[in-house]
């Protein structure tokens, strides 16, 4: 069972992580590199009076930096897949059907829980923006992801309005409580770049999570890594 879970998770994580990394390098990385020109002070914008061209040369593919990004994206999506497939295996034992098709819904729920729910208050941010203490934000991030994941399970498998009300409360609570915010804003990056970065990060995340769910369901339902059935006699 462990081998089957790990094999499916690594296959699904590697496949969707590779696609996520390529989407990220194409759509998100140029925005991030553009922001770094302002973070480093190479570009300075002065509000309404800026005359800096919106189009900047941010360089091409950096073998080491972008290669590491690809490796780490595949690792992170494999980690997501391990947690999601563990939940899928438990759900299947209780009668849920796990396939590529149902996996798509699992993936979208995973995106909501792990990417969108924390990002609703701690938006994906470009380098150089003001932020609160990283440890406080990480604690809030894990608490929010955990509560949103339970909420997704309640919506998917709970029965009756009590489950749905509980899910709504779990989804709202971290944002009503509030994420750790900086005391002052010091970001040197134009808001246009920051907004595009957040939108692109969410979009790529949603696509990658949908694929992760579908691949996880596919490899799991194909019994990849399961011991061969005993020959019938």
């Amino acid at each position: 069972m462990i081998t089957r879970l790990l094999t499916s998770a690594l296959f699904a994580g590697a496949a969707s992580g590779l696609i996520a990394a390529l989407l990220q390098l194409w759509f998100v990385q140029p925005v991030l590199l553009h922001a770094e020109l302002y973070e480093s002070g190479a570009l300075l914008h002065f509000g309404a009076d800026s005359n800096i061209a919106a189009a900047q040369d941010v360089g091409g593919f950096d073998l080491v930096r972008d290669g590491l990004s690809i490796v780490f994206t595949m690792l992170i999506y494999s980690a997501y897949a391990m947690v999601m497939l563990a939940a899928m295996a438990l759900a299947e034992e209780r009668g849920a059907q796990i396939s590529a098709r149902t996996g798509l819904i699992w993936g979208l729920a995973g995106f909501v829980a792990v990417h969108f729910a924390p990002g609703f208050s701690l938006a994906p941010e470009v380098p150089g923006v003001a932020a609160a203490d990283v440890v406080l934000r990480q604690i809030w991030w894990f608490a929010t992801v955990g509560m949103a994941a339970v909420a997704m399970a309640l919506i998917g498998f709970g029965k009756g309005w009590m489950a749905w009300a509980g899910a709504a409360a779990l989804l709202l609570a971290p944002h009503v409580y509030g994420a750790p915010e900086p005391e002052v804003f010091t970001g040197p990056v134009p808001t246009e770049i920051g907004a595009l970065f957040a939108a692109r990060a969410f979009g790529v995340g949603m696509a990658a999570w949908a694929l992760l769910g579908a691949f996880s369901g596919y490899f799991w339902s194909r019994q990849i890594g399961a011991p061969a059935p005993a020959p019938s006699t």
Binding site: Q24, G119, L122, E125, V134, G205
Partner: peptide
């Protein structure tokens, strides 16, 4: 870069 893109603090 991945941490920024995936919204990790």
């Amino acid at each position: 870069d991945v941490r920024h893109a995936t919204g990790f603090p």
